[in-house]
Amino acid sequence: MCFRCACWRSPSRHCSPCRCCVPAGRRVTEPHAGTSHGLAAKLAWRRGALAFDIDLTLPPKGVTALFGPSGAGKSSCLRALAGIERDAIGRVSFGQTAWQDSAHRLFVPPHRRRIGYVFQEPSLFTHRSVAGNLDFGYRRAGRPSHLDRDGLIDRFGVRPLLQRRVDALSGGERQRVAMVRALLSDPALLMLDEPLSALDGAARADLLECLESLHGTLQVPMIYVSHNVDEVARLADHLVLLEAGHVVAQGALQDTLARLDLPPALGEALGAVIEGRVVSYDAHDQLIELDFPGGRLWLPYRHESVGQGLRCRIGARDVVLTRLPQTGTSALNQLPCRIIAVADADHPAQVLVQLDAGGCVLLARITRRSWHALGLAPGSEAWAQVKAVALGV
């Protein structure tokens, strides 16, 4: 298989796009990172018993998460956007450039889409050292001066690994190398397919911190596939929710996870993602205090410093509602709220309550009995109790 044009011909380093990739006479333009448009796709295909029908529009910057339960089709969707899933029929565009248009027999092969792709299992060259793997993409991109090669190597902690062989690396080390190699290829779009799923707890936490630090300085958009809602809450700006090969919701992260109309398969992910700033640190109890528009929250200390911006996810299951503030409770956090709306949950004994906490939307999953016993109703006031140990950060 030709890795340059993704067709079944003999490999050639200098091969041009084949007729199956680009119609004769059609000029293919390369997208660039400075475009004012994001990625748009409308595709349909079948993989086994699962029929895909994808219609999505992604912003031109920031991190978009493809999120959903196992088997929802997240990885297959990413492969179709990259041009690896050749059975997908429809249209894909990035910026002002069409990557695929089945109606006009247009198909730009993956290597001409300027995508940095990181798979679940790192696809590194085993016959090259770590330095050789990193330099491969960097040289092919023309050693672009705007890329901080040394800065990326240090940020992901791979400098001590440069002279080592790939087969001597741990899973976490391989994945860090794969990410740096993708970034050094000067992509217009970065795609990460569950890069932390095969890692143990320590390696996963370490790499997640690397990605989190990259978020604020990344100049190209990223599409991140995950089934872990805490990863999504820490990294994503935009969210696409998938179920059974279909997009069931998409939009800003905070708005989408707090919706009341999501399908039951996504029920465990329901909740709120709030953004605030660390205002104090209790060294004795190893807690930090986060200030946000709805009040203040105590969270377990990780490695944060006072003044640092921070995201916090509050799961709907972790919120307890009361009519009045409580004393003598182990819950460290109590927030005054106003009830916005209520909806049936996926179990008939439960309801979902949407809350306004100083302009921030929270969700609470409570029993129907508690809803009636407390006399709650849209527009009424309530207090949301949240245990500090339940807060995912």
Rank of each mutant, 00 (worst) to 15 (best):
V225N: 08
Y281T: 02
H238D: 11
G251K: 11
V279Q: 06
L253Q: 10
D237S: 07
A233D: 03
D282A: 12
L235W: 10
D261N: 14
A272L: 09
Y224E: 03
L235T: 09
L262A: 13
V248S: 09
E231D: 11
V248D: 04
E275R: 14
T256Q: 06
A236D: 04
T217H: 14
P264W: 06
A272S: 15
D237P: 04
Q250Y: 11
E243F: 08
A252N: 15
P264Y: 11
L241Y: 02
V278T: 09
L242Y: 11
H246Q: 15
I223C: 08
T217A: 14
V240I: 06
H227N: 02
V220N: 03
I223A: 10
V225K: 02
T217C: 12
M222P: 08
A233S: 12
P263I: 01
A236N: 06
T217P: 00
V248H: 04
V248C: 13
Q250F: 10
D285M: 05
P221K: 03
R259E: 08
V225Q: 05
A283C: 02
E231F: 00
Y281M: 03
Y224W: 06
A252Q: 15
L262W: 12
Y224M: 09
R234M: 10
S280A: 15
A236W: 01
D230P: 04
V225Y: 09
E275N: 09
P264H: 07
Q254Y: 12
D285P: 00
A249D: 05
A236S: 07
D255W: 01
Q219M: 09
